[in-house]
């Protein structure tokens, strides 16, 4: 019954785009659209995926797609969903693809409003952990220690000082019908979550980690590998939240892989000292204790 590589729609709906070679965000958009199919109406705010998908007159989407204001992904989704419904159109999915800045900083208010109204939309945040389209500026989803152009690494301050905002739990705290975290390192899990979300009525939110070779300082062929490593070392986790049944964890590494190895292979973390890595290790352990507590274990 589950969706997999053999049952996935053979058509491509995001093709010929101008994303950097090895882009994680474009992989997330491509796979989500293959799961949702041609009858999906995509909304993309300012960000990488709108910059690479709409190069006039080139249009790299095979389905309906539109650029929204930076802050208005969710509100435009609301409008599109209501408009289509008013025209008597049935059996479609209004889906938004916003980056981490467009979700956790600029688009948070509109998203919160849409969840509050429980509009029948699917919001996918592809999280590459900084404003990559404009040249790597810190967003509120940039992790501690990461070097960006607005949080440079120097002698006294070594990259970003603040931890990553917990978007998944912020969204879940609204009492949303469905929210999930995912990673392009595990596409089977991501496909299942998109498919599950498309069957649920009301607001759905999926937060997918999508490494960026340009901004993270990794080789283009390492994107998927690095996304997997983030799961294995416990710095990212796969979970779901459902109204009524609460949070479930989908993947738990037996023993955590080395955080240091994960960090040191990326250019944005290469300046970190042993003490910084200890801080990151410690915050991971605290996070997992909280997760276990939430699960009632």
């Amino acid at each position: 019954m589950g969706i997999n590589v053999k049952t996935l729609c053979k058509d491509e709906f995001f093709y010929g785009h101008k994303a950097c070679a090895g882009c994680g965000g474009s992989l997330a958009v491509r796979i989500a659209l293959k799961v949702l199919g041609e009858r999906s109406f995509a909304v993309l705010p300012a960000g990488c995926m709108s910059a690479v998908g709409f190069n006039f007159p080139q249009l790299c989407f095979g389905n309906n797609a539109v650029i929204s204001t930076f802050a208005g992904t969710a509100s435009m989704l609301t409008g599109i969903e209501a408009g289509l419904r008013a025209q008597g159109i049935r059996d479609f999915q209004a889906v938004g693809f916003a980056g981490d800045g467009g979700t956790a900083d600029i688009g948070l208010q509109a998203l919160s409003g849409a969840i509050d109204r429980n509009d029948d939309i699917l919001y996918i945040c592809y999280d590459n952990e900084a404003y990559m389209n404009t040249g790597i500026q810190k967003s509120s989803l940039t992790p501690f220690g990461a070097r960006t152009t607005t949080t440079p690494a120097g002698k006294n301050i070594r990259g970003n000082l603040r931890p990553k905002k917990n978007m998944f739990e912020i969204v879940a705290a609204h009492g949303i019908p469905y929210a999930a975290t995912a990673s392009i390192g595990d596409l089977n899990d991501f496909m299942e979550k998109v498919e599950k979300a498309s069957r649920i009525k009301g607001t759905k939110y999926i937060h997918v980690i999508a490494p960026c070779p340009t901004g993270w300082g990794i080789a283009p062929d390492e994107t998927v590998e690095v996304a997997k490593e983030a799961l294995d070392c416990g710095l990212w986790y796969l979970a779901e939240y459902e109204e009524g049944s609460g949070m479930t964890l989908n993947y738990r590494p037996g023993t955590f892989a080395s955080v240091e190895h994960y960090l040191k292979r990326q250019g944005r973390f290469r300046h970190l000292t042993g003490d910084d890595i200890d801080i990151i290790n410690h915050s991971r352990d605290v996070k997992w204790k909280l997760i276990e507590k939430n699960l009632g274990e």
């Binding site: 010929g16 007159p57 309906n64 797609a65």
Partner: peptide, 17 residues
């Protein structure tokens, strides 16, 4: 030959990668 508005046909590619 270009459309009047920025609304355009889906899946329209003019360059290779």
């Amino acid at each position: 030959e270009l459309p009047d508005a920025t609304a355009y046909e889906a899946g329209y590619l003019v360059t290779k990668n």
